[in-house]
Simulated assay, not measured.
Amino acid sequence: MQSFTLGDFDISRVTEWHGRFAPVSVLFPSIPAKAWDAHRTWLDPHFWDAATGDYQAHMQTWVLRGQGRTILIDTGMGNDKPRTDDLMGGRSGDFLHQLAALGVRPDDVDTVVNTHLHTDHVGWNTQLRDGEWTPTFPNAQYLISKADFDYWNPANSITRKADFGDPADSRAAFNDSVLPVHRAGQAVVWEGSEHPIAPGLTLQLAPGHTPGSALLKLDSGTDRAFFVGDLVHTPLQFLTPGHDTCLSEDQRQAARSRLRMMEEAADTNALIIPAHLGGAGAAEVVRQGSGFAIKRWAPLSAPAPQN
């Protein structure tokens, strides 16, 4: 099962790619090796490959349908994108076919949420048609935080972190996956700490991973969920949210944002739904001492690791 219900909304995930991404010692430099080994029985194989030491990543989009709306949260890597990274560049995947299998056509999508503007979250914002990058979802508003729009815009003279990946890919992603929807008049570049979308759906700024990183809060009926983008990459961050990834622009700020989110999620029984988590994909947490513990996993089946 790759779908479940929260209040008025049906939640589905579309996995564009999953497999070994990079060594956890590189991605999570502050997490000691013994922490991975201590939780080997449930981290391996869906979140971590114990044999290789690699992080198991899922590039996926969350689809929300309810209240007469169809909303996509993040749009993955996209097809045909010119990237220096072998995984991200020149892809020819079946993302749109997977959406169609859910009964979602590009014309049906009314809202696209980009939790932040990293390359692997904006790819299907656009597709290549007759040599031009055009919005994939012609009837959608694309919600983008102004902080990220300004930060990643190559036209602005900003010194950006380049510890991981090629800065050329960030420039290319903005130019082929963000600017076209802005030029088409479909981008909503929002400011402030919060941005309401619909009854029970609110975007909230959670900076650190990028300056404009945001999470989407769902509050519908008796159900609550936080779609947190890259605020969480590994379930070990559920247990000890002070650990961050080398991919963040500001690791300390990201840790503060994550802790605030975790405290609220534990106090309100909200399901935490990250962008890249494999396995069941999401979990509820409870406070435990000075940290947290996993209370319950989401009712999703776990795709088998690809490698």
Rank of each mutant, 00 (worst) to 15 (best):
N269H: 11
V286Q: 13
L99W: 00
P138W: 00
H195Q: 14
V113A: 03
F227M: 05
L96H: 01
S92I: 07
D267I: 07
D223A: 10
R105D: 14
R20H: 10
D219A: 15
T134D: 06
D267C: 08
W62F: 09
G221A: 10
N114C: 13
A187L: 03
Q288P: 07
T202P: 06
K161F: 14
L201S: 07
E263T: 14
P29W: 09
D110E: 03
Q60D: 08
T15Y: 02
P199K: 06
K295E: 11
G291N: 05
A270S: 15
S3M: 09
I144H: 00
E249F: 07
A155T: 13
R40H: 02
W152Q: 13
P23S: 12
Q67C: 05
L6N: 05
A162Q: 15
G53Q: 02
D219P: 01
Y142M: 07
T119D: 13
W297Y: 11
P207V: 06
V189R: 00
G76A: 12
L300S: 05
F47R: 04
D223I: 02
A100W: 03
G90T: 10
W190G: 01
E132M: 08
F9N: 03
I31A: 09
S177K: 09
L64E: 05
P82V: 08
Y142P: 01
S257E: 10
R105H: 10
K146G: 09
A225K: 00
Y55N: 07
T136N: 03
Q56K: 02
D250W: 04
D37Q: 14
S193T: 15
D163I: 10
L27Q: 15
N307A: 11
H121N: 12
L179N: 12
D86E: 15
F9C: 05
T61K: 00
D110S: 08
G229Q: 02
F9K: 03
R105W: 03
L247E: 15
K295T: 06
T202E: 11
G281M: 04
A198F: 02
S170H: 11
S301V: 09
R296V: 00
A283G: 05
A35Q: 08
W152L: 12
N175T: 13
